[in-house]
Each structure stands twice: as structure tokens, then as C-alpha cells.
Nucleic acid binder design. Sequence first.
DNA 1: ATGAGTGCAAATGCTTTGCATCCTG
DNA 2: CAGGATGCAAAGCATTTGCACTCAT
Lengths: 157, 157
Amino acid sequence: MRGGAQKRSAAARSERMLSDLAAAGLKLTAQRRAIVQRFAAEETHPTAQELYERLRGEFPGMSFATVYNTLDALTARGLSSTLRLGTAARFDPNIEPHHHAVCDGCGAVVDVPAETLAPKAGTVARLRAKASGFTVHRVERIYRGLCGRCEASRATQ
Amino acid sequence: MRGGAQKRSAAARSERMLSDLAAAGLKLTAQRRAIVQRFAAEETHPTAQELYERLRGEFPGMSFATVYNTLDALTARGLSSTLRLGTAARFDPNIEPHHHAVCDGCGAVVDVPAETLAPKAGTVARLRAKASGFTVHRVERIYRGLCGRCEASRATQ
DNA sequence: ATGAGTGCAAATGCTTTGCATCCTG
DNA sequence: CAGGATGCAAAGCATTTGCACTCAT
């Protein structure tokens, strides 16, 4: 069920990423296919390092620069977004509108589906008035708190 | 007027930071005083590098490590928060509840006052149910869009 | 065939750390 | 005067870049 659903969506993501890259005239090398396939299946917002290490296992000779290169190409086309929570950038293959919940205890990051990232009319007007004519295009939220596991372990201490 | 108000709030911030550090048993060295005073007056969410360079002008011999050390001490006491938008961390001396508007054009960051960062009851319940028992403590928002200046220059192009 | 893409390694940028010395409380 | 704080420099990560070689189109 859940595994199946994840597998299907990962496959769909992967396919979409590859076809979009091809449509943009980028070459589909064996490395790019491998990176995209692995990345599309990720649920944990990996850093470039993490992705690189996972890939090197099944694909020796994989280069760091190539991982960054491919992630950048995806990001430039809106097929990946970049999450900056700590020192290293985390890459997110989820292109449905969503926010993030970040655990203050263990640092885990969980996607929180949203209907839209578009600002409400009132927000647009308020920012235009109060933030030097700023025009909002989208609103990102970070929910900070404790994940179920950390909340439980705190209770028992 | 505006300059006066900024000066007063900067002085108040500075005073508050120093007294809190002292209350925590930290020594008030000349360097710490200088860093705190300069930082409290910042409106532009400086990086550690920027702050260091500004300080070195008026205070030769100032060390990088000391700047980080002091900013960390302030952050640990909730007197500064860390903003991670690009590669370098930006430090924010504003401890009133607020969100941030980030310009996609020039990268400028503007504070947007908020009444509270506390989540609404519905948000707490929703995340507990949908995000594996996650307990939200506060909600941060990033408004992405274009600042007045970038919006204007885009219109004329 | 041809130019984009790759691998490697070195460079760059930000942040942290170790240690001898200094100075606040 | 004791222990925290500083300055300096080196080490540690994350990320980017230069260049010769390879391969998808």
C-alpha cells in the first residue's frame, strides 16, 4: 500500500524529471538517469553529499560535480527545491505544494501538504503597504517543534 | 523620527543583550561590547563576515572566532536568530515576533512584524494527525517575491 | 562529429577548533 | 588570581570551478 504508492510516485517523478530535462535539450547520460532515479525516490530531503554517497555504492566513478550539476538543472526547472535549515543544503524532489515540519530535537524534516503556496489577497496588500512595496508571490512555512519520537523520549526523561 | 526610533531601539536591544549576557555569568569584554553594540544596530541581517568586517574598521585585532562566539551566545539565549537563505548564515537581532520577506531579484530580506509565531489550535491538531505526531511550537514564514525596487526595474525592461 | 557532460582535483567560502596568552569578575 | 575569553592560524565541511577526456545526440 504505502510502499506501493511511494514507488509509483517515485517512478512518476523520475519519469517527469527525465522527460523535462530531455525536452530542455539536456543530454540523458547514464549518470543523470541514475541520479534522477535515486533522487526521485528520496523521502528524506537528502543533502548533495548523502545522495552522492548513496549513488557511489551502486555507481562507482560517480562525481560530486555531476550530482550538483544535475540537482541544479532540476532546481532551475522547478523539479526540485532547496531547503536551507542547517549548514548543508537539502534537496526536495516533492513538487506538490507543501510546507515543512522541522524537529528541534533530531532535525528530521517532514513534508506537510498544503493546498497552495499562493498568498491570500490580504497578505499581498499588507506586505505591499508595510514592507516597502514588496510583492509576494508565494508563502513558505516552517513548523518548528518536536516529532512524535522526540516528544515521547522527552516525556520519559 | 525614523532614524531616532531606530537609534533608540538599537540602544535598547544592545542594553538588553549585554545585561542578559552578564546575568548568565558571561564576561563583558571590550570585544563583546563592541560586537553587541554594532549587531544590535543592524537592520540588514548581516552575515558573520559582514559584521566582522564592519567591526574590524573601528576595532583592529577583532577576531572572527570572537564574533561567532558572541553571536552564538546571543542565539543560545534567544537574543538573536539565525536566518539561512543562501550559503552564509544571516543573524537577526530582532526579537519581536516577525516573519521575513525575501526578494527573488536582489536577495534583500525585510522583517515583517507578526502578532505571534504561535500556531493556531487547528494547525497543532492537523500536524499531530498528519505529520507522525509532530508537536508544533512555532510557525515561521518566508514571503518570497519582489521588493519595490526590483518590481519597478522589471516593469521598465 | 561535436559540443555538452563527466571525473578528478584543486580552489573557494563559511564556520569551527586548538592552544597560548590576556583580562574580567 | 583563576577561569573564561581572545587572537591567530589551521582544520573541517559544503560547494564551485578548470580542464582534458568521453559519449549522447
